[in-house]
Write a protein that binds this DNA or RNA. Structure first.
Lengths: 138, 138
DNA sequence: ATAACGGTAACTCCTGGAGTTACATCGGCC
DNA sequence: GGCCGATGTAACTCCAGGAGTTACCGTTAT
């Protein structure tokens, strides 16, 4: 895997789960094989998705993971913000007491436009559901 | 600096240049002091901005950097895509010949929605110019 | 009881950004 | 012409974080 492909991997895993819906839970090894990675990596990712109430895990023998709701109600935006940093844009440390007005005020000035950009990203990703993705796959 | 704060740092530097417009070039040491980092880091970043035709460098004594055009014509989107990876979303390696249809087709299926999301991000960032940022700073 | 699961800790490996030093080069200015 | 203050860039080091791996515990169907 490439670094920080967490979002795409999560979508990949969710799509696999969507295709197996109603046929019982899918184990991490099976998902890992499709994604071409390690079962532990999948379990860790699923942990984050579970905390976001997008999947649920079934413990014990014949356990695994399944979607916690209708795939039509899970969007790419849900997956993105469950798995990636909540901040799309990382700030450097600015000193509000700096003598340079740019350094002192940039954070406040940029917060509006950056929030707007995150919202735009969210809205766009929210237009595609896991169901859409799963249905597009033959 | 935090890791991958390249975009914010670039906006910071551009804002400094905007405030000094018409007063001659600003040297990398002065920008670095405001950003609270190293002059070499600034010069490297300016190199990328220069390749995107957003700034120009003046060599020799009393040299430095200045905006290459009206700050009202430079948007946050220009800066973002000059300085960050062209791909907002990183793919993991998918094998198109995989026996799992999800692994084989996910790349094609996602390309549309992901391109749309990048466009949405671009459009939102394009609504704010460096002039807007510079004017908002007292 | 056993075997097949998830959950998690404790690592290692690797990539990439940031910081730093050093040096070549350029171009006003005296 | 020579100096000095800039950029440009190479060659590192340092560090954070994602990914991969092994190991072990708890859980549950058979």
């Amino acid at each position: 895997m490439l670094s920080s492909s967490r979002f795409i991997v999560a979508v990949h895993a969710m799509s696999v789960l969507a295709r197996f819906q109603g046929k019982g839970p899918v184990c991490s090894a099976a998902v890992a094989e499709s994604v071409h990675t390690n079962p532990v990596v999948i379990r860790r990712l699923m942990g984050e998705l579970e905390r976001a109430h997008l999947v649920k895990s079934v413990a014990g023998r014949a356990g695994g993971f399944e979607l916690s709701k209708d795939p039509a109600g899970i969007t790419l935006a849900d997956v993105y913000f469950a798995v990636e940093d909540e901040n799309v844009f990382r700030m450097h440390k600015t000193d509000p007491r700096s003598c340079c007005p740019v350094a002192a005020q940039l954070g406040k000035v940029l917060s509006g436009p950056l929030r707007a950009a995150e919202c735009a990203l969210h809205s766009s990703l929210a237009r595609t559901s896991i169901r859409d993705v799963a249905l597009a796959i033959v």
